[in-house]
Design a protein around this nucleic acid. Structure first.
Length: 283
DNA sequence: CGACTTTGACCTGCGC
DNA sequence: GCGCAGGTCAAAGTCG
């Protein structure tokens, strides 16, 4: 763990965990995200503490290996003096906000030897994806959406299989992948793809409108594991607090809703640097 | 009996 | 073109 979080960059770690995927790709390239990053984060709903944290929490002690994230590479000196524990917290938070770029893929397979339909020329747009790392003994972390497992695959260079889940709601195309970190089997990496198009089937969200972003969902549908004290190393982006107590389900109702827009962006911390530069690029 | 999981086969993209 | 790895399908099995 220390090796992953302390002695090497997360991008290193993820790159090895997801060897064929590009990680921390905050739109360096031409490909643009279908949604703004802040949207994907449900930023209008982000708990202010997240930004509070970024204001007072040190940045990564080592640069991420992302040439675009130049701001990350020069943390203000004062931030370097904050406790390592907090640096890790923020790092873990940043680590959790992974985004993969879209990847072309088309398919519909025939069974029984029928010929498969020809590929279309259209590139298949992949939904943005976000990974959450959580220390847990349970592979499938409970959130308040219902998931159906539709596949499991052995992962190369890992003794742990990767499981594939789909939201059970008909019209909802959200998927998630669950796997264990090969370098630290106690860590579960949950990757969400897409956005729910419906409220949680198990918790009405009258105050939240019909469309919840995946991140928003992930932020709000705090798995029970997140309720563990941070000392238990729940590696969620939500775990900014020392004990995660603000992350219980009532968080959904208790959290203050940030007003959208500029006021939120007063922060000068890492996350904002990262996000705002991304947003600028998108504009 | 419906919802869900398991699992092997199949499909696709990518690197060589 | 081939092989590999990731991702998905769908039949069969399991469970409540």
């Amino acid at each position: 763990m220390e090796d992953m979080l302390g002695n090497s960059s997360f991008s290193d770690y993820i790159s090895s965990s997801f060897p064929s995927q590009r990680v921390f790709d905050f739109s360096c390239e031409e490909e643009t995200m279908p949604l703004g990053f802040m949207e994907l984060l449900g930023v209008q709903d982000l708990h202010p503490s997240l930004f509070d944290m970024t204001q007072q929490t040190p940045l990564l002690t080592r640069p991420l290996h992302n040439p675009c994230s130049t701001k990350i590479e020069s943390p203000p000196p004062e931030l370097q003096t904050l406790p390592r524990f907090h640096r890790h917290q923020l790092r873990l938070s940043m680590m959790s906000l992974l985004k993969w770029t879209t990847r072309k893929k088309t398919r519909k397979r025939p069974r029984n030897g029928e010929l498969k339909p020809k590929k279309t020329n259209k590139k298949r747009q992949r939904e943005p994806r976000f990974a959450f790392m959580t220390k847990s003994e349970v592979d499938h972390l409970e959130d308040e959406y219902r998931w159906r497992k539709y596949g499991q695959k052995a992962v190369k260079n890992s003794s742990f299989p990767r499981s594939y889940y789909r939201c059970t709601t008909n019209s909802c195309k959200v998927k998630k992948r669950v796997e264990r970190s090969f370098s630290d089997p106690s860590i579960v990496i949950t990757t969400y793809e897409g956005q729910h198009t419906h409220p949680s089937p198990t918790m009405p969200r009258s105050s939240l409108g019909a469309v919840a972003s995946t991140f928003d969902m992930a932020m709000q549908r705090t798995p029970s594991h997140y309720h563990q004290p941070f000392a238990a190393n729940a590696l969620s982006p939500l775990n900014f607090g020392q004990n995660g107590s603000s992350l219980n389900p009532s968080f959904l109702h208790e959290r203050r809703f940030c007003s959208s827009g500029p006021s939120l962006l007063k922060d000068h911390g890492l996350l904002q640097d990262l996000v705002s530069s991304l947003m600028l690029k998108e504009e």
